Amino acid sequence: MNDRVREDTARRLEKAMGALGTAAMARMEERLPWFRALSAEDRSWIGLVAQAGIAGFVEWFSHAADERPAPSIEFFGTAPRELKRSVSLQQTVDIVRVIVEVVEAQVEDLAAPGGLEELEKAILRYTRDVAFAAAQLYAREAEVRGSWDARLEALIVDALVRGEVDDGLHSWAAALGWTSSPVVVLAGFAPDDDPRAVIDSLRDRGRRIGLDLLAGVQGDRLIVIVGGATSIKDAARGVVSKFGPGPIVIGPEVPDLHAAAKSARAAVAGLRAAPAWPDAPRPVLAEELLAERALDGDEDARAQLIDTVYRPLAGTPLLDTLATYLEQGTSLEATARLLFVHPNTVRYRLRKITELTGYQPTEGRSAFTLQVGLILGRLSGIQPG
C-alpha cells in the first residue's frame, strides 16, 4: 500500500470511529450476556475502552507498515481499577473480538481504493498483537495480585497465632474472599520444599476439595487455617499430606475467623508439647494433649483441666476416691480398703467421675490427664469443700 492510499484509508477510519464505537457497543449488548448484566456505568466505561481501542488502531495504522510500533494496550487504562478487576481476560478477549467483527464487517467501505487487502492484514496483525499484550498484562497483574494475596495471607496467619484479632484482620480476610465457617487451625512442621510452593500447593488442594484455606510457613512450622469443613476429620483429611514429618495438631473447631485465634493458640501449644507423647496419633487433637500442654506451661490448658476435672469433683467424695484410686496404682481393692467402702461403691464413683469429667480413670491416658488436673486444682488454691 502506497502512502497516499494508506493516508486515505486512515482518514476514512478516523471519520468512522464514532460509528464503529456505537456499532461495537450494540454488538456487545446483543452477543455478550455478561455485558448486559453490568451496570449502566460499567457499560459506559467499556464503551470508552472500545472507542479508545479503535482510536489506537487508527493511530497505529497511520504509520507506514515497516514503521508501525508494537500495538499499545494503554487504552485499557481508560477504565477505573475496580472495573479492570471485575472483567476477566476471557471477557477482554470477547471485547476485542466484537470490535474486530464490527470493523471487518465494514472493511470494504473503510478501505480506500486499492487498500482493502492491506487493511485486512493490518486488522489481523493488530488484534493478534493486542490479544497477546492483554494476556501478558493479565499475567503480570495476576503475579502482583498473587504476591499481595500471599502477604495478606501471611499477615492473617501471623495475627491469629499472636492472638491479635481486630478489624484489620477481617478486612484482610474479606480482601481474600474469606467467608467460610466453621474454622479449624492445624499446626505441624513444614516440608523441605520452598515455602511459596508449599502455600501454592495448599491453595490448589483447597480449591479441589472445596474448602477455604489460609496457610503460613513460620520458620520450620506450618500453620493451616481451614474453613467450611463439615467436620474436624474432613478438615484434617484434606491437608495432612501437605505437612512435613512430625506431629500435626488440630485446634478446636470455632464458629468463625474472629474466634480462630483460640484454635490457633491451642494447635501451636499442642505442637510444642507433642514430643511428650511420642505415640500420639497423627494428626492429634489439641484437646488430647491437655495434660502435656499444661505441663509445658499452657495457661489455657491448665484452666481447662481445672474446670473439667477438679471443679466438678471438688467438695464431693468423688475427689477423694479419684485421688486414692490414682495413688494406689488404679487398684480397685486397695482403694476400697483405704476408703472403708465396698469395691462396688468405688466402681460406681469411678463411673460418675467419667460422666462428670469425660475422662475414664481406668484408662491409661485418661488417668494421666485426671492426675494432672487433680494436681493443678490443688495448686490453684480452690477449696475442695
Rank of each mutant, 00 (worst) to 15 (best):
R203F: 03
V96L: 11
R81A: 11
S231P: 07
G163W: 00
L214S: 08
I353C: 04
I209F: 14
T92M: 05
T179Y: 04
L13K: 01
L124H: 15
D300A: 13
Q383G: 15
S231T: 11
A142N: 14
E7D: 15
A70Y: 13
D166W: 01
T179A: 09
P312E: 01
R140C: 01
I123L: 09
G364T: 15
I382L: 14
A267S: 02
L289V: 04
R162L: 00
R282A: 05
R293M: 10
E118R: 09
F35H: 03
A294L: 09
L257D: 11
S39W: 09
V198N: 06
P361M: 06
A24P: 04
G146K: 03
K262P: 09
R272K: 08
V161F: 00
I95P: 00
H342I: 10
A50L: 09
A105F: 01
L32C: 08
A150F: 08
S72Y: 01
S180M: 05
R208W: 06
I232V: 15
L213Y: 10
R162G: 01
R85V: 04
A235K: 05
G244D: 11
A135L: 15
R43S: 10
D66C: 04
F243C: 05
K242R: 14
F340K: 15
P312I: 01
V183R: 05
A260S: 03
G77E: 14
I99H: 04
I225G: 05
L38A: 07
D300T: 15
A70L: 12
S86Y: 14
